[in-house]
């Protein structure tokens, strides 16, 4: 289990950070995912861990988004009440990544193209982002991705195609 978690922990953290846009929240999500995997599925065969781990992770990220949306709807009328680390579906300006959100040390280590990649992936709508990270970066099959995202294989392909188109357009200057 230790070896498996060591393999996926950094990618899982970045996946969560892209999704929730907050380092502390992302760390909490990864910790919760690790513990849930160990407690519920630790005795399962090792081959099952990866899809299960990412399924739990995506579920936690989606839950975080839902909670943020509810919080925003409840407290949105208060000036500053909606300013949390969630998503901003109806505010295009807020879609631009806040440079202060990411860890300064990690940001300093990034070169221009990596920073552009981070910004482009973070700005993707959540479902497109999940499809791209699980399928393209993590290398899960379409079926495993669909399971992790709790949707159909067709939806995964649609989200993935849109994500690729957006990223290609945004990142073509960096290649």
């Amino acid at each position: 289990m230790n070896t498996f978690l060591a393999e996926v922990e950094k990618r899982a953290f970045n996946m969560a950070r892209f999704g929730v846009r907050d380092t502390e929240d992302a760390l909490d999500i990864v910790q919760d995912t690790m513990l849930t995997l160990v407690r519920r599925y630790g005795r399962r065969p090792r081959a099952e861990w990866r899809p299960l781990f990412f399924r739990i992770l995506q579920s936690r990220i989606t839950d975080h988004h839902r909670r943020s949306t509810v919080r925003r709807k409840l407290f949105g009328w208060i000036p500053g009440g909606s300013r949390d680390s969630g998503t901003y579906d109806d505010d295009p300006v807020a879609e631009v990544m806040d440079p202060g959100v990411a860890d300064p040390a990690s940001r300093a280590a990034l070169d221009g193209s990596a920073a552009a990649m981070e910004q482009a992936v973070t700005a993707l709508p959540l479902r497109q982002q999940q499809a791209f990270l699980l399928r393209t970066v993590e290398g899960l099959s379409v079926e495993e991705t669909a399971q992790a995202m709790n949707c159909s294989s067709g939806s995964v392909k649609t989200h993935l195609s849109r994500a690729h188109t957006t990223l290609r357009t945004k990142l073509e200057d960096h290649w």
Binding site: K10, L27, D103, A105, L110, A114, M117, L171
Partner: peptide, 16 residues
């Protein structure tokens, strides 16, 4: 795109 994203996905600060 996939190669660039994979490289980036492994980057975290020493503290993290």
């Amino acid at each position: 795109l996939a190669a660039a994203a994979r490289r980036h996905a492994e980057e975290v600060s020493p503290k993290v």
